[in-house]
């Protein structure tokens, strides 16, 4: 068993010896975010310290309300933090967004129903003002990457849920951002489709060498996909544990029955249990 020791169940898990060797893509220090609601402020994120290196596959896992989606949205500049600092590729999130530094995959495919699959994939390319021929080339390449070649002229509502989500991943990949932010992208799909897409996502990650931040509430999904797993807990939303995966980069689906896999999953489960009080 070669799981590295936990650094502490409270917060601030960024000791120098665990910092990734690669150059950092996301760096957060003392990050906090409070939403103003009718019943007073709600602390969605509190005291988050996190560094994500280039080429990592980091999963955020925790019960609902733990701030995992909020954290992803802060990275994407869809929410503004109220405390602490965060930088993306050395820039503020806003600058990074303006530079189209990341592709974002939402919980639902969010394809525009009046556009064909290829026009949906072309949407970010149109906004960025790429030439027609360049658009065609990238559409062809990214649709091939997600195995949707031949479905260019179909409308989203003519495709299954899994295919729609693959098209939305193609759309996020089309403009070649190095960072991919995925917010429970397979949460609404059945388990068979989900397994298949997880396997494809790992292959895609290996081929493209992108940095991926992946929000999920499924322990097997997090352990199967990630190089690091960030365990979070609610009230206030905070990081309670960061687990380095010792699984090899090559991961067939049946690795999920291996003792190593099960040990990591057990530690994730322990982390979730420790951070979450069940009294309410």
């Amino acid at each position: 068993m070669t799981i590295r020791p936990s650094v502490g169940v409270s917060a601030s898990v960024k000791p120098a010896n665990e910092a990734p060797a690669n150059e950092p893509v996301v760096e957060a220090q003392k990050l906090g975010l409070a939403f103003q609601t009718g019943d007073g402020p709600v602390q969605a994120l509190s005291d988050v310290d996190l560094t994500i290196g280039k080429g990592e596959f980091v999963s955020f896992i925790g019960p609902s309300g733990c701030g995992k989606t909020t954290l992803l949205r802060v990275i994407a500049d869809l929410e503004r933090p109220t405390e602490g600092t965060i930088s993306i590729n050395g820039m503020t999130p806003e600058q990074a967004r303006e530079k189209r530094a990341y592709g974002y995959v939402f919980q639902a495919a969010a394809l525009y129903p009046w556009r064909t699959i290829e026009r949906n994939v072309a949407l970010p390319l149109e906004i960025m003002g790429l030439s027609r021929s360049e658009q065609q080339e990238r559409i062809r390449r990214t649709l091939e990457l997600v195995n949707l070649t031949g479905f260019e002229k179909k409308y989203p509502w003519q495709l299954s849920g899994g295919m729609q989500q693959r098209a939305s991943i193609a759309r996020a990949l089309a403009f070649d951002a190095d960072l991919l932010l995925m917010d429970e992208p397979f949460g609404a799909l059945d388990e068979i489709v989900r397994d298949h897409l997880n396997e494809q996502l790992l292959k895609l990650w290996a081929r493209t060498e992108k940095t991926i931040c992946f929000v999920t509430h499924s322990i097997p999904e997090a352990v199967y996909l990630s190089t690091r797993i960030v365990v979070m807990s609610p009230r206030p939303g905070r990081v309670t544990d960061i687990i380095e995966s010792t699984l090899p980069k090559e991961r067939p689906l049946d690795i999920r029955e291996s003792p190593e896999f099960l040990a990591i999953a057990a530690r994730v489960r322990d982390g979730l249990r420790a951070g979450h009080s069940y009294e309410d």
Partner: peptide
């Protein structure tokens, strides 16, 4: 929808692009 608007935001699209490519259709 919110998701469709957030998507346009992640592309750093301007007001008019958002209008013509999402909100008017």
């Amino acid at each position: 929808g919110h998701m469709e608007r957030d998507l346009m935001r992640t592309y750093a699209s301007g007001y008019w692009q958002m209008l013509f490519k999402l909100r008017l259709p």
